[in-house]
Nucleic acid binder design. Structure first.
Lengths: 182, 182
DNA sequence: GACAATACGGAGACTGTCTCCGTTTAGCAA
DNA sequence: TTGCTAAACGGAGACAGTCTCCGTATTGTC
């Protein structure tokens, strides 16, 4: 990639990161281009669709997901606490941007989605937590990581749309956790 | 209301009903006006916002909700079957239009929403089912009808966005049901 | 039949998406 | 350094959807 192209690419991603955080995923792309100091043509050449841009913004976020899952695995307490701790972290992770929970959970399991790699990371992170609890024979084994991701993602989506805080979300996570535990 | 106003009102609602069913809630309102044979000004005078139009379209649907809840209450079988039966009906009810689950569940608990009356009907219908199960001491009593509506609505939202069928939704509803039952 | 209130409807302002293509620039080779 | 070419830029503008304004038309009443 040419140096000027790389520079503009980086500027656009940075402008998008700010914009998504402050104004949500449905903010104007032309405005993001303006913020980045480039023309709309340049933005659309680098990112054919809105989702491609979202995907790029999420690159750094992936490392954070892995790290958070590791932390959840070493969490002290019984299976219920471990599970609930992961659920809360999961909700926090996918809620960094307004509209994020719906976007991510909707793409979950869709191999054609531009953000599928991000979904896979999230799913495998959750899978690791689930596997550990299965080793302890603590959770039912007829449920897949994808289903769990959708259950918790659904709660996060509702919370995002209704602007609920984690305190309001907690009881709903508890219902799902109790439904999963043996 | 003047006779011509009433006629146009009805035409718009009917056109919107078709459009929402076939093309989802984000379809063009100007197009709906065109389908109804009126100008956009007429549509916007009757319905200031998209939600107001959605609300009007849902008027007939409310009776159907009541009826479905009554049927769920007389459903044969144990508490788990009654609950799951209601959950499946609930998902079906709020999924009549693409985007419906998100719209309805997002408005749940929001007193300022134009479709709040519809949400209240759904909530009280669910409340009746829950009350019956509580009489049998079958469900935990630290969970509100609103929370249950959000849990099931979250699943319906994900299913709608990921285009999952009821077969795929069922296991997730089971997790929630098991988490709610004592 | 006249008149006032009510309602209509479409032109057009505005915003966002996305493309096309003339212009500019980076990077390389002589 | 200069010249060249492929790569990249960027903004004008086509297109679509939202929503309003206001001149025109219709309704219902006296």
């Amino acid at each position: 990639m040419r140096a000027d192209a790389q520079r503009n690419y980086d500027r656009i991603v940075e402008a998008a990161r700010m914009a998504f955080r402050e104004r949500g995923y449905d903010t104007s792309l032309d405005q993001i281009a303006k913020d980045a100091g480039v023309g709309p043509g340049t933005l659309y050449r680098h990112f054919a669709t809105r989702d491609d841009l979202i995907d790029a913004v999420m690159k750094a976020w992936v490392d954070h997901v892995e790290e958070t899952a590791d932390k959840a695995l070493t969490h002290e307490g019984g299976p219920r606490e471990v599970l609930l701790n992961w659920f809360e972290e999961y909700v926090r992770l996918i809620s960094v941007h307004k509209g994020g929970p719906a976007k991510i959970t909707g793409a979950m399991g869709d191999d054609a989605s531009p953000i599928r790699t991000k979904c896979q990371v999230l799913q495998s992170a959750g899978g690791r937590v689930l596997d550990r609890l299965r080793d302890e024979d603590a959770v039912r084994d007829d449920v897949t990581p994808l289903q769990v991701a959708r259950l918790v993602g659904g709660i996060a989506t509702v919370a995002d749309q209704s602007e609920l805080d984690l305190v309001a979300v907690r009881p709903m996570l508890e219902v799902v956790a109790d439904g999963l535990l043996k």
